[in-house]
């Protein structure tokens, strides 16, 4: 493995984040703060505790997960889509660089940004609600695994997309609804039994549940199910990317 190309891609992508600091970091932090103001302070004060956790604190893991998922997908998809759009991808495809190195560079940068953002939002939420992290190791594990997995998904979307509208399609029409319906703002116990069963088909439920367990020790599904789901998703993304590079799908005619 050659580290120079990985470093070049990683640093170029991180430089793009610095150039677009308002959009990349400040904007998601402000959005999350607004969620805290509305759901945590205004509405949350009228909602009783859930499993012994105040509503404001209860939604912290879900909010971080919401941002983590959307930002990972959006960063990684844009990172690979833009060279395709501008035509400068010729350089990437003609470089003596393996597929794995390309993925590490782009996905590594997108995941780094998302993890950084997740930690900033975590720190921001500490300003609004009292925080406790019962299992810091698992919290970081979920943070990193989710960021990497959804950055891989974003990378796939970036290669698949043939226009800016399609680039936004999956994050807006799939990721955001699944996250909102994935228990970010409620425990699935609060749903009627039928919808509880339906909700279990939503993979985001497992991520939010596992992540929330790492904070408060409470979860909707078992830790093993959460870890299993994120691992399954990670493997599925890796298989898809392997196929893309093997066949040259939307990259090489």
């Amino acid at each position: 493995m050659n580290l120079h190309p990985i470093r070049a891609i990683y640093m170029a992508e991180m430089a793009r984040t610095r150039r677009t600091l308002l959009q990349s970091i400040v904007s998601p932090v402000i959005s999350t703060s607004l969620y805290f103001v509305v759901f945590g302070a205004a509405i949350g004060s009228r909602i009783s505790e859930i499993n012994g956790v105040s509503y404001g604190a209860f939604i912290v893991p879900g909010l971080i997960m919401l941002m983590l998922l959307t930002q990972s997908v959006s960063n990684a998809s844009f990172g690979i889509f833009f060279p395709k759009f501008s035509g400068s991808i010729y350089e990437l495809l003609s470089a003596p660089i393996s597929h794995l190195e390309i993925v590490i560079g782009y996905v590594g940068a997108a995941a780094s940004k998302s993890i950084l953002l997740g930690l900033i939002i975590l720190a921001t939420s500490g300003l609004f609600v009292p925080l406790e992290i019962a299992h810091p190791f698992w919290m970081l594990t979920f943070l990193v695994l989710t960021a990497v997995t959804f950055s891989l998904l974003g990378f796939i979307i970036g290669i698949w997309a043939d226009g800016f509208d399609r680039l936004q399609l999956v994050p807006l029409l799939v990721i955001t609804p699944l996250t909102f319906l994935g228990g970010s703002f409620y425990s699935i116990d609060m749903l009627p039994p039928f919808w509880q069963t339906v909700t279990l088909a939503n993979p985001v439920v497992y991520l939010v549940s596992g992540f929330r367990w790492s904070f408060y020790g409470i979860s909707d599904v078992s830790l093993a199910a959460s870890v299993g789901m994120i691992t399954l998703f990670l493997v599925a993304c890796l298989v898809a990317i392997g196929w893309i590079f093997r066949t040259g799908y939307r990259l090489k005619p």
Partner: peptide, 28 residues
């Protein structure tokens, strides 16, 4: 390779984009 189309990362500086290419091709 110098392609036919003028394909560039519009927001990058000349120095950065040329240095990026060197790194991408595996050179220190």
């Amino acid at each position: 390779l110098v392609p036919q189309e003028l394909t560039n990362e519009a927001f990058e500086t000349v120095w950065n984009t040329v240095s990026f290419s060197r790194g991408l091709f595996g050179k220190a």
